[in-house]
Design a protein around this nucleic acid. Sequence first.
DNA 1: TCGTTAACATTTTTT
DNA 2: ATGTTAACGA
Length: 816
Amino acid sequence: MQSRLLENLNPEQLAAVTLPRESAMILAGAGSGKTRVLTTRIAWLIETRQVNPLGLLAVTFTNKAAREMLTRISAMLPINTRGMWVGTFHGLANRMLRAHHREAGLPQTFQIMDTADQVALVKRMMKANGVDEERFKPRDTAWFISAQKDAGLRPGSVEAFDDQTRQLVEIYTMYEAQCQREGVTDFAELILRSYELLARNEAIREHYRARFAHILVDEFQDTNRLQFDWLKLIAGAQNAVFAVGDDDQSVYSFRGAKVANMRDFEREFNAGTIIKLEQNYRSHGNILEAANVLIGHNQQRLGKNLWTSESQGEPIRLFEAQTDFEEAQFIVEQVRDLKAAGVPLVEVALLYRSNAQSRVLEHALFSAGLPYRVYGGLRFFERQEIKHALAYLRLVANPDDDAALLRVINFPTRGIGARSIEQLQDTARAGGTSLWQAACSRGGSKGGSPDAPRKGVEGFVLLIDRLRNECAGITLPEMIEAVIERSGLRTHYEAEREGADRIANLDELVNAAAQFSDDPMRMLEMEADADSFASQGPAALAAARQATGALAADAAEAEADAAMLAAGFDDRPGLPATDVDDDFNTDTNVDGGTGGTDGGIAAAPDAPADQLLIQFLSHASLEAGDNQANAGDDALQLMTVHASKGLEFHSVFASGLEEGLFPHENSLNDAGGVEEERRLMYVAVTRARRRLYLTFAQSRMLHGQTRYNVASRFLREIPVKLLKRLSPTYERGGGSTSFDRPRTPASYAPVQVQQAPKIEAAGMPFRIGQNVRHAKFGGGVIIDAEGRGSDARVQVNFGREGVKWLALAYAKLDPA
DNA sequence: TCGTTAACATTTTTT
DNA sequence: ATGTTAACGA
């Protein structure tokens, strides 16, 4: 009997879902049902008993994608997804490191820095070691360090041929040592550490290899070198890696993603099969054809052509505006029409290449009273008041966390100035200790009345100690409340003018902690104690339970266990997940185990709240929270093209399609830059189901200056027959005037055209901002002028051909 | 220690 | 234009 799961799959999807246990690459085009294939395969493998839910590993890039996957699996199968290894690279690495922290050389309470923390730490290291901050900017240096880690390189392995690099490596070395001292990691470190753990520890490596017979990877085109190697290591030679990706949607090379990984996959993972999913279920024909032709301009492709059974649909609407302001006006009008026509605003996306472009758009939308939502601002856990509160919590969990200490030692102010901190740092450096230890020894006659609130370092030490004691027997939300009150954060923000929002956010943090505490999905994060027993069948589970006595973990595993039994997954010999040697337990998973010798807080068997705190802090670092303003309402969706990847909308506006902006001028230098920009454009186009607007403006306010741009080359790459010009000022060749605009609705007419700056050359037939045509360079726009009469020269931006100065006496320039 | 001013840079971003 | 950070003076 054929499983119901397989109904309604097309032949390629079906083939992919039901592939035998071997490595395979699924080339899944935009809108081809990629996520469906991935989740259906997981469900199918489980349903047909080819694998135990705990015997597979599914990796994504975002928490959102991981959640989506779990949700869909739950909907397809009556199993408890708790305990399954479905998550992000970072989340899973974190989970592994918590379970084997000793072998990985980390304290169980190790903290994860976000990018800001990382930069701050680099800066501290540079300052402490007298590195010239002019020559090495902390941000760039942090970037360098992450890039090395993403390539799998420790300081010793980085090849440094020049002085500059040598010094960077030196900073990297110091940074690494400091991280180790403090017991903190950064994002890249999680994966690198996890990689090294697997590489060095055969028992652990074999354990996971035996466990994960099936490995599934989403968005493979976004993997970097280290992630690729990590997968290879954990898969081993015998396990199957089911990789799904689309080389045409690779738009993250700037952060280390290697499209080439898709090509290398076949060879290095022994991929037996490559399946292309080319049927698009999302867009109408015209949109898809535009996308196909556009991406066809790229040379570096694996090759894939999307098709649809849908009709051609509407033409793609092209609008050329005089100014960015006018462009925004146009969009407002169109959105109103769409709304009037019954299209929900959440189904309408307004995309742009860079965040700076949202400003004009927002302004127009706001004036028009159209509700909108901007994605990509500050995330919840990145807000300063939240980071402050978390820093106190981090100190409670691990006082050696210098970054946390520095953040809050004088916030709210308690009279600890720069000089006190410097002294602390000297003491710490001299003794090779953390700042906390320095503070304890210095600030510290432990005597005195404990209730007398003291100023200075001593008071701070007292505060943290008191907090830690207080946190011992209470719940996580209570801990956070205690921190907010005791630290003085609440009082501080209450006194601040704009503090109301911050107080609200702090209350929200308590809320989030309460929710987190009883969220079943929390298993996404980790289950440090009993985790590595989980795969080993009921017998090992029982042993683990008995050994640990850790209530939280116990309950969780028991639940998962029960679910397994209910689904009939108990003790089935022969499956990779169950035939792990028992001695693995005693050898490698010592935490909270029989020994009980671990000195860490979390090792105490009766300390579930501490475990919860560690989990919550990981959660805060790994999932920075929603970056969307106010959910719920029917609002227009504003975001960068990058942020739109993976989403789809009824109608899409792709705005600012101008040379220099999209493709972005900074991308023109680096190799493959334009191709990546084109892929980005491809992503933008393929977000639309029914209607697509492409808009650009001849002039745009950027960095306080008016810039004159020419239409993006990508517009020219889209066949004219697919386009409907709502403003004919944009001409492709042809000598006709750019302004033969037919009667437009009044609302489309330019509202207020920015007055072009005066040119000193009186009587010159050209103006700044005017479109011109050159026999050799093609169409362009005048952006500057100088001289007069026979000396007159104009500077023309020809887009693709670059910006050139031309003498009017010689150059054949025609008004276009 | 805190508040003001000057300098500065400004693609894309998840974890 | 704008928002953030570094340096400076009360």
